[in-house]
Structures are given as C-alpha cells and as structure tokens.
C-alpha cells in the first residue's frame, strides 16, 4: 500500500512537470478527454445555468417591485439613448462607406462568427478559463477572439472537435495589446487572476484618464483591432482596466473567425487543414443558428457616443 501511495505521489509530480513543459502527448490526451466529457458537462451545466437565471430573475423582480416607476423611467431613457445610437451608427456607416469609396479602399472581409454556450467554468489558483460548446467541427481554431454582448471575453487556447477552451482576459497568462482612450494610446492589458486587468507598458507621453475606453489594438496579429475590452479605473501610475464583460458569469459567447498571419503560430492545424492561415471561413457550415455572416468588425469607440464612464473621462479632460 505504501509503495502504491509513493507511486501515485511520484506520478502526480511527473504530471506537474510535464504540464509545466507543455508536453504535446499530455495536451492531446487532455483534449480528447475533455472532448469526450463535453456532453456530460453540457448536461450538468443546465441546472446551474437555470439556477443562475432564476436568481437573476428574482433579483430583477425585487428591483422592479421596489421601485417600479424609477425602473420604467430608466428603461425609457435607455431606450431613447439606444435609438439615438442606432441613428448615429447608421449615419457613421454611411459616412465610412462614402469615404472608403472616395479613397478606393480595399473591401474588408466580412467577419464570421459562431455563437455557443459556456458549459464549464474552470477557475482556480492556476487558471481563469471556460469551456464553450464549439469546436473544430464548428470551425473554431486556437487563437480566435471570444466576445459576448458586452465586449471581449478572451481567446481560444485549446480546440477539440466539439469544445474549445477560452482563456479569459483576467487569466495570469493573458496579455493583450490595447489602445486606450480617444487618442489610442498604446498599452498592454495583463491579467492577474483578479477581477481587473493591469494596464502596463503604456507608451511614453500618453495621457490616460479614469473612464477611458480600452480596446484591442490588433498589433499582436491574433486579435482583430477595435474589440471593446473595458474602461480604465484607478489612479495615475496604477491604472487598471475593468472589463465590460462579466467574466464570472458568462453564458452565451461568440467566437470570431478572424484569421491572421499569427494564427499559424498559435494553431498550426489551421494551416494544415485549410491550406492557408488567411482562409477565414470554417470548412464546414457551422450548426444551425450559430453563424451569422456579414457582420462588420466592431469599430473603435467614437468619443461623441460616450458611455457614462467615458463621459467621466471626458469631464476630467
């Protein structure tokens, strides 16, 4: 018995070391097992997701019952603002199209995406990641950006046939080159396993204010430019980024099929499978109602259309 225990301790130590060096056999085996467990996880996640939605509904009901009139006023105001945004967006889209025509700019390829659900949530001292029920069969590759309605959530780091692992923004290994504020100051958003990201490597002479919006710069060659990440918080010198997306309670997410030259480094299979890193479309038609084509890349935030936090930064300026 003692010999068996010793063997098990030794095996654990060996596995830890192999994990640290990223042994490919171990990674492949892990992908296979996670793929196999996906249907069970999907089934097991249903009660948890329903329970979470129930709690959210109860919270909403309590809030509405407490202050129904104020809630209606707030929603009416929000609706009015959204209508204004819609109008201004249409106006800007027309302007951009006109200017592109004048400049004879090359047409940007339409961005394809697939939407799925978070089926497992993996958080601990080592990782902040999530499993989504989209895999290579749906066209997902390693290195793709993952977003939800609020903004960037993370990027795919493992892709099995039917599931993919998403490294969340706040994971210790997450490093994202970003642009900050309306002037587009270059910086790096670093995850540290906490709720907020560190803002580091800010370019010299950049003026940053709390409330400035932070979005991807695309200079890493992996993520597309202009994906909203969050807003700047904190004091000068110790600026942080509070993500727009609620990373603790992710539900539905979308994977953007944005292939860049760097994808050959993050996922060599993408090249082997499809004969080129820049072939953005998945090989096979993704499952029903998961893909919508023709959506354009979210543009960098326009200063005039400021959110409340951005308004605060504007006021400070």
């Amino acid at each position: 018995m003692e010999l068996l225990s010793f063997a098990l301790y030794f095996l654990c130590a060996v596995l830890l070391v192999l994990s640290r060096i990223g042994h490919s056999t171990l990674t492949d085996a892990r992908d296979e097992i996670v793929d196999l467990s996906a249907p069970f996880l999907e089934l097991a996640s249903v009660p948890a997701v329903e329970a979470r939605r129930f709690v959210d509904r109860v919270r909403l009901n309590v809030r509405v019952h407490r202050n129904a009139v104020d809630e209606i006023d707030r929603l009416t105001k929000e609706n009015e603002e959204l209508k204004q945004w819609q109008w201004r967006t249409q106006l800007l889209e027309r302007k951009v199209a006109h200017l592109r025509k004048l400049l004879h700019a090359a047409e940007e390829p339409a961005l394809v995406y697939a939407s799925g659900r978070v089926i497992a949530d993996a958080r601990g001292p080592f990782v902040r990641s999530a499993l989504v029920n989209l895999g290579r069969n749906d066209g997902v590759r390693i290195g793709y950006a993952v977003i939800n309605g609020d903004g960037l959530v993370g990027r795919t780091v493992e892709a099995g046939d039917s599931v993919a692992r998403v490294l969340l923004l706040n994971d210790l290994n997450s490093r994202i080159p970003v642009l900050v504020g309306p002037n587009g100051a270059r910086a790096m958003a670093l995850g540290d396993n906490s709720a907020e990201l560190q803002l580091d490597f800010v370019e010299d002479g950049a003026t940053i204010y709390a409330g400035d919006e932070v979005y991807t710069s695309g200079s890493d060659g992996v993520l597309p430019r202009g994906l909203r990440i969050g807003a700047v918080t904190g004091e000068p010198g110790t600026y942080k980024v509070r993500p727009f997306a609620e990373l603790n309670s992710l539900d539905s997410v979308s994977v953007l099929f944005f292939d860049a030259p760097a994808i050959t480094q993050t996922d060599p299979d993408a090249v082997a499978d499809r004969g080129g890193a820049l072939s953005a479309l998945p090989q096979r038609e993704p499952r029903e109602d998961r893909t919508a084509s023709g959506t354009s890349l979210p543009l960098p935030p326009v200063a005039a259309m400021s959110s409340p936090v951005a308004g605060q930064a504007q006021a400070e300026r």
Partner: peptide
C-alpha cells in the same frame, strides 16, 4: 482535466 490547470 476539467479545470484546464496543470495536471497533477
């Protein structure tokens, strides 16, 4: 395996 952390 499920957590995505280091094995072991």
């Amino acid at each position: 395996l499920l957590s995505g952390g280091p094995l072991g």
